[in-house]
Structure formats: C-alpha cells, structure tokens
Simulated scan of single mutants.
Amino acid sequence: MSVNLPPAGPSAPRTRFDANAAWKSAAGVIRANRQILLVMAGLFFLLPQLAVDFILPEPAPGLEGEAAGEAVLAIYASWWPLILLGFVAQGAGLLAIIALIAGRGRPSVRESIAAGLKALPTMIAAQLVVGAGVGLGMLLILLPFAAIGGEAMTGLALIPALALAMWIYARTMLIAPIVAAGGVRNPFEAILASWRTTNGNASRLLLFFVLLLLATTVIYLVATSVPAALLAVVGGPRAGAITVALLGSLVAAAFSLLTAAVLTAAWRQLAPPPQARP
C-alpha cells in the first residue's frame, strides 16, 4: 500500500521557504493518508513513549531542589537503555514515515519501514556530528567569556552561543528527508546537502518550527493539565499521572507525525529537482 501525494508543484526549485505551502502540503498528506500514517505514528511514536512513561520509576515524593534533580539523574542512569531504545524507535519511525510520503517509486508501508531502518545509522551518525559541532562551537564562545569575567560573563555569552546552536540546527534540520527520501547514506554528505538546501532559508525554517513547537506545547499543557486535575480529584494522584502520560504521549505522537510531514514538505520545496541534485 502506498500513499497519495499532493502535486509536487513546479519543477523549478524554490529559493524561498513558503511556510504556508509547507503546512498545507503536510496537512494534505496526513489527511489523505490518515489511516496508514496514524497506524505508523501509533507504532513508532505513541507506544515507545508510553513504554518509557509507564516503565520508568518516579522520584521519591517530597524531594526538592538539588535532591530532586539528583534523583531524576539516577533514574536516567539506571534506565538509559530503555530511553535510548525509545529514541531509536521514534527516529526509525520518523524516517519510515518520510520514506512513505516522499520515497522514490511510491514505496509500500513495508518498504518504507525497511528504508527507514536502513537510513537510521546515517541519521544517527549525522546528528552526532552536528551535536559535536554545536557543542564545540558553543564551547569556543563560552570559554573566552568565562576566562575574562567568570559566571556573569558566561551567562551573557549564552545568548550568542544558543543563537549559534539554533542556526546550525536550522541549517541541518533537513537531514532526515535527505537520508530517508533522498537516499543519501554518507552522514557528511547528508549534512552538506542539508546545508546547501537550507541556504538563505534558515531563519524562516527556524521560525516556523519554533512556532510549531510553541503551539504544540500550549496544546500539551491544555490537554494534560485540565483532565489530569479533574481525574486526580476523582481517582487520586495516580489517576492524574496516568492521564498526563496518556494524553501527553498522544500529543507528542501527533507532533512527531506532523514534524515528519512538514520536514518532507520543506525538503520537497527547497531541494533541487532530481536531475540537478548532487
């Protein structure tokens, strides 16, 4: 079974990211193929998130401040394989959905999942390289300020350091569709391809995804806080915690699905036509 794609638009590559067109394309793909995509989102996004939420133990009640932070870190240190497995499953699902939406030859669901798994090592390697580059860049900004003025200057230097990190991530955010739908298997080539594709559009892409994240955060807070408070009154704190986990996982899964569709739409807008791609 393959998905139904909206028209790809003119063959000439666009030089300016159109957020409205990307949103309409992503919404159209999800609406036209909602049964397939919802099943894949449930399998790769919802179930791993629920598994992590329900299996991970909660910190002991009554802890505050530094003690609460140490308790959370201890839980993560003990359960990191489960957390890592959840991230890997969600990453594979993101790539599989992108491959299903825009993969070459209109792949089936099975072929899309296989393509996502094949692209996963490249995606992980590319993200590790990007993360290392971001960390090094931030360190090079923070260290001189720390040497000059201590904590006060270091805090001030966080502004340009975070701006650099956001800019780099904006330039590399199309790695996922490049490896999943574009078939690139070299992580460095994927990074360079994303860098070229987002040239001149990083600020617009970043603003669009920041707004999308903010909207999702508001929806998450509204969808979890009110029902959780009501059920906590009726069934106790445990019922409220379960409600937060269930509804929060649903919102997170929807956001991941929408992210996959929007990333694909942005890549289809900005990438050069097949005959011009390196």
Rank of each mutant, 00 (worst) to 15 (best):
F208T: 12
N4S: 15
A157R: 03
V134N: 01
P237Q: 12
L174D: 10
P237A: 13
A271N: 06
A92M: 11
G65V: 14
A115R: 03
P187Q: 10
A115P: 07
A125Y: 03
I168M: 09
R104I: 09
L46A: 08
T172S: 12
A245Y: 01
F188V: 14
L258C: 02
A119P: 10
Y169N: 15
V39K: 01
A114E: 10
I36K: 02
P144T: 10
F54V: 14
R104C: 06
I36A: 15
P177T: 08
A119E: 05
L82Y: 04
A21L: 11
E70Y: 08
T224G: 10
V88C: 08
G183Q: 07
V129N: 10
F44K: 06
M138E: 09
A265N: 11
N4C: 07
R196H: 02
P227S: 05
L270W: 00
A228M: 11
V218P: 00
F44T: 04
G133Y: 02
L143M: 12
R16Q: 15
M153L: 15
P107G: 06
A92G: 10
L158D: 11
A181G: 10
L250F: 02
L247R: 00
T154Y: 01
M40D: 03
E66F: 11
A215P: 00
V184C: 13
E151R: 08
V88K: 05
L82I: 04
L50H: 02
R31V: 14
I168Q: 00
L230F: 09
F44H: 03
R196C: 01
I98P: 05
P121M: 13
L5E: 11
A157Y: 02
Q269M: 05
L230E: 08
G105Q: 01
F208L: 13
V52K: 03
G137A: 10
A180T: 04
V233M: 13
L37E: 09
L192F: 05
L192R: 08
V72G: 04
A152L: 13
G65R: 09
A239F: 01
A71Q: 09
I191M: 13
A229R: 09
I191H: 00
G42P: 09
L63W: 12
G133V: 07
A265R: 04
D18C: 07
V234S: 13
L231P: 02
V109L: 14
I159K: 08
G62F: 07
W167G: 13
V109K: 02
A215K: 01
P273G: 02
F17C: 10
V226M: 12
P107A: 01
A21D: 14
L257C: 05
F145E: 11
T154V: 04
A132W: 04
M138Q: 11
A276M: 13
T216F: 06
M166H: 06
L174R: 03
A193G: 09
R204S: 15
A254N: 06
L211S: 06
L231M: 10
F188R: 00
W80A: 15
G65Q: 12
I98Y: 01
T243V: 15
L38T: 14
W23D: 13
L207P: 03
A241H: 03
F188K: 01
G137Y: 05
L100W: 00
R185F: 12
D53T: 06
V130A: 14
G133K: 00
G236C: 13
A125F: 07
R204L: 14
A146Q: 06
A51H: 07
L136P: 07
A77T: 08
A92R: 02
P10E: 15
G28H: 04
I178F: 01
A119S: 09
A26D: 03
Y220Q: 01
